[in-house]
């Protein structure tokens, strides 16, 4: 008898698979745009705090960065989940690694989101308390 069957995963695996395809395509566009602005059109010599602050003054770039953060982060996390699924077989280790992945993933995603949403562009570096 075939005993390898897991309980049906419902729609989650379907969704995860579809998400990987869609986020992959969207990320190619977003990341190419990001690379062009931050590394081709402007060099690292020109990019400083004020450059980023000015950029985040526009809701468009905040949304751009927020979408890129969420898609890239979740795409990568799901990839790691599959690696764990393939190579970590022992039940205890699976629980440990998957929980760690979920925790680290959630904390870092929340931190990034909070910064993008609540960042207030100061008028100068001095008001921002920077040298």
């Amino acid at each position: 008898m075939y005993v390898g069957r897991e309980r049906p995963t419902g729609g989650f695996e379907v969704f995860a698979w579809f998400f990987m395809r869609i986020s992959g395509v969207v990320l190619i566009l977003l990341v190419l745009g990001h690379l062009a602005i931050m590394h081709v059109l402007n060099t690292v010599d020109e990019i400083d705090f004020e450059f980023v602050a000015a950029r985040w003054g526009s809701p468009f770039w905040r949304t751009y960065d927020l979408v890129m953060l969420w898609l890239a982060w979740l795409h990568g996390l799901n990839g790691l989940r599959m690696v764990i699924d393939d190579y970590v077989h022992r039940k205890g280790w699976r629980a440990v690694t998957l929980t760690a992945l979920a925790l680290v993933g959630f904390v870092l995603l929340a931190m990034g989101t909070q910064i993008i949403l609540t960042f207030e562009a100061p008028t100068s570096r001095v008001t921002a308390g920077l040298p």
Binding site: G4, R5, E6, R7, P8, T9, E13, V14, A16, D85
Partner: peptide, 11 residues
């Protein structure tokens, strides 16, 4: 339904 599991096509 048989294939829609983590050990089915999604592997």
């Amino acid at each position: 339904a048989v294939l829609n599991t983590g050990l089915g096509v999604w592997r």
